[in-house]
Amino acid sequence: MSNPSFISFSGVSKSYDGANYVVDDLNLDVRKGEFLSLLGPSGSGKTTTLMMLAGFETPTQGEIRLDGKRLDDKPPHQRDIGMVFQNYALFPHLTIAENVAFPLSVRHVSRAEQKTRVKRALDMIELPHLANRRPSQLSGGQQQRVALARALVFEPSVVLMDEPLGALDKRLRETMQYEIMRLHRELSLTIVYVTHDQAEALTMSNRVAVFSDGRIQQAATPSELYENAQNAFVANFVGENNGLTGRVVNVSDDSATLALADGSIIRGRCESGLREGDEAMLALRPERAHIPSAEGTQVDGHNNVVQARVEELVYCGDHHRVHLKLGARDALVVKVPNTQRHALPAPGDMVEVAWRHDDCKILAMTASAHRNAPANYSPPSPLPSIITTAPAGAN
């Protein structure tokens, strides 16, 4: 059973100079009750998209609809949308209760109803005892919870959040993540959330839209993005990725064979449209690769195997990060669980690195992926000079 669209962007573009588009032909649907994150680097168009939905920016082209009704021709205060900003935007001269009541007062809600709703909102964020304090007397986490209560107090149909946790330290940020997730779940909110933090997007969202160059590169569930990126930009930007590039030497059904810079031949899953001779990137998560000699295991026929030199070992508590060189310049990272049975190699050792064919994906390189590649990246040479390439290292 398909869910009808609650928020809809249809052919939406935004240009400030009439020539360059910060958002380009955006088509996106958001379901009622969904938590959608807009994820991307600075300048990718995610915040402009949010601002157009909020009414602070006007689309150059296209339509935005909310529950089937045209929205882009209405001013912000008529859109029934709550907004939470990164800098809280609380009024310093008002008490916490007065800050939370502000959206109700501008909507001419009665004083009695305001009092009831403010109490309910402060109870919801577990700060009723701070109602008479000023924002300067609260911690950053408490101020952000107040900003959230203010956005929810008038019971909007949609809540927009623009990097709301960016100013908090790691512990407070994680606490607020769970707080927002709890409120989303308990109140069945529709949330559109802008962030550049991949872990935050994967942790909190029902679905994530990855932006680059004003366009959505992929919109999918967190697990689908992480496990099945559609292009090299998404693979590099979402989570940690070993991005090794080469030339496609064979394509069959849903798999392809790639020749790497050092002459290694590997096989992996692929998307349709990949052709022999294409420049492509291997997408491999560090936790999916392993070093058989460290684990006392044997390589089976389902694995890709390459020879690499150990450069560095980094202790990370529950795992070790093993940094390796594949050939002259290619870099590879393997996460080895910190268990007693693992005999770690030493820097300078030559080891086999193995991973299953199904645990990696071979993706066509895009302009966005090239810009997202490390500084030492240079594209592979045309066939047959495969081994002269200098592909991207681990990202």
Rank of each mutant, 00 (worst) to 15 (best):
I7F: 12
G11N: 03
V12R: 13
Y16S: 06
G18V: 06
A19Y: 10
A19V: 12
L26Q: 09
V30H: 12
E34H: 12
E34K: 08
F35D: 00
G40V: 08
L53H: 13
A54R: 13
E57M: 06
Q61T: 01
G68R: 08
G68S: 00
D73S: 05
K74M: 03
R79S: 01
D80C: 04
F85T: 12
P92I: 02
L94G: 06
T95W: 15
E98H: 14
R107C: 00
H108V: 10
S110D: 14
K119S: 03
D123P: 14
H129K: 13
N132I: 00
R134I: 00
L148M: 12
R150E: 00
V153H: 11
V153G: 13
V159T: 07
G166D: 03
D169G: 07
R173F: 00
M176V: 04
Q177N: 12
R182A: 01
R185T: 06
L187M: 11
T190S: 07
T190R: 08
I191C: 02
V194Q: 12
E200H: 07
E200Q: 06
M204F: 03
M204K: 08
V210E: 04
F211D: 11
F211Q: 07
I216K: 12
P222N: 02
E224A: 06
N231D: 02
N231L: 01
N231S: 04
N236D: 05
N236M: 09
R247D: 10
V248G: 09
D253V: 11
D254Q: 11
D254M: 10
G263Q: 11
S264I: 04
I265W: 14
I266H: 09
L274P: 14
E287G: 14
R288I: 05
H290V: 02
H290R: 14
P292S: 15
N304G: 06
R309Y: 05
V314K: 07
C316R: 08
D318T: 09
R321D: 08
H323F: 06
A331D: 01
V334K: 09
K335L: 11
P337C: 01
P337M: 03
G348V: 15
V351T: 14
V353R: 10
R356H: 07
H357R: 13
D359K: 10
D359H: 11
D359C: 08
M365C: 09
A367L: 14
A369H: 08
A375G: 04
P380H: 03
S381P: 13
P382F: 00
L383R: 11
A394E: 10
N395H: 02
